[in-house]
């Protein structure tokens, strides 16, 4: 083309603009095609994820009527009221406490289960199925199981305590124990999923690492500490992040087991939002709480990535 360019310059210009037009047309065409495939998701995300996020922020600056329509613009008042409200502050504090009470035990227990379920033994598939089974138990069903276990007179836990000569505990009505009781239920529920992910991570570790360790005569726990745990760090990272976010979103077990009580001890943030919005019809102040929840989860994820990146060993 460069050879003929000097002689027929004007033609080339026409040719180039022609090419440009065709290119633009095909670019436009591929853009529309791409959008055709993506449009259903984009529309639903816009309506049910992005719009609600902005609308929540918007609502948090207003008072509303019972239908949720805005009535009075109050600026930062909803937020100011939240941060001096002892009930809300307690709910934030207890949500963090709840994360602390549920995430480390869930991950540690699930890891231990994954370690023993990763052995090549006869019938191991059966145990793997049992260990992951709590993933299939809904929050409503799990709460009913534990509601009975926690029952002060008939419940199994107090019967066991009494058999050992200890006094029974008012698991769900004693402010000292209620959050712990809800945490125990949550840990049990979350083990299934966490176990399944950790086991999957373990099975994808290159077996030659273990073989060479065997040749060197390394012991069982040495291999666990020096191979399994470091190689599993991306999976740990994922599992911890997901568990923290899940804990922040806890609702069902609270609704069935304690309804936020006793004395707001288990009034975790999502339950608090629910109550403020759908029981008290204070959509403005509930939205302010939701914004706080959103920021908390965002911060936790960011923090996780910042801290996690340094320690995580990627293959």
């Amino acid at each position: 083309m460069s050879m003929i360019a000097p002689t027929i310059g004007t033609n080339e210009e026409a040719y180039l603009s022609q090419v440009e037009r065709v290119k633009r047309k095909s670019r436009l065409k591929s853009f529309f095609k791409g959008m055709l495939f993506l449009l259903p998701s984009i529309i639903l995300f816009s309506v049910f994820v992005f719009y609600p996020m902005f609308q929540t922020i918007y609502l948090s600056f207003f008072l509303t009527n019972a239908q949720g329509a805005t009535t009075v613009f109050v600026g930062w008042e909803n937020y100011k009221a939240l941060f001096v409200d002892p009930i809300f502050l307690k709910s934030v504090k207890n949500t963090f406490l709840f994360v602390f009470l549920t995430v480390p035990p869930t991950v540690i227990i699930s890891f231990a289960l994954a370690v023993i379920a990763n052995e090549k033994l006869k019938g191991i598939g059966f145990f793997r199925t049992i260990f992951s089974s709590t993933m299939g138990v809904s929050v409503a069903a799990a709460s009913v199981f534990w509601l009975y276990l926690f029952h002060p007179t008939m419940g199994l836990l107090n019967k066991i305590l009494e058999a050992f000569g200890a006094g029974g505990i008012e698991w769900l009505t004693d402010p000292k124990w209620a959050l712990l009781a809800v945490s125990m239920t949550t840990i049990w529920m979350n083990i299934g999923f966490t176990f399944l992910i950790l086991l999957g991570g373990m099975q994808s570790i290159d077996s030659s690492l273990y073989e060479s360790a065997d040749i060197e005569g390394s012991g069982y726990f040495y291999k666990l500490r020096r191979i399994t745990i470091p190689m599993l760090s991306p999976t740990f990272f994922f599992v911890i992040t997901v568990s923290i976010i899940h804990s922040f979103q806890t609702f069902g077990q609270i609704d069935i087991l304690t309804k936020g009580g006793p004395a707001n001890e288990t009034n975790l943030i999502v339950y608090s939002i629910y109550r403020e919005a759908f029981v008290n019809y204070q959509f403005g102040s509930a939205s302010a709480q939701a914004v706080v929840l959103f920021i908390l989860i965002l911060l936790m994820t960011a923090l996780q990535f910042k801290l996690g990146e340094r320690k995580v060993h990627y293959q």
Binding site: G34, S41, I42, V49, Q55, L59, I273, A290, F294, T301
Partner: peptide, 27 residues
């Protein structure tokens, strides 16, 4: 498919994971 704005849309998809459903339940 390759088209303009694909990377931006991909980023948008990732962004949805940052919005917990529980926080947007009111709208």
């Amino acid at each position: 498919l390759e088209f303009k704005g694909r990377d931006f849309l991909f980023f948008l998809f990732i962004a949805t994971m940052m919005v917990p459903f529980e926080a947007s339940v009111i709208p």
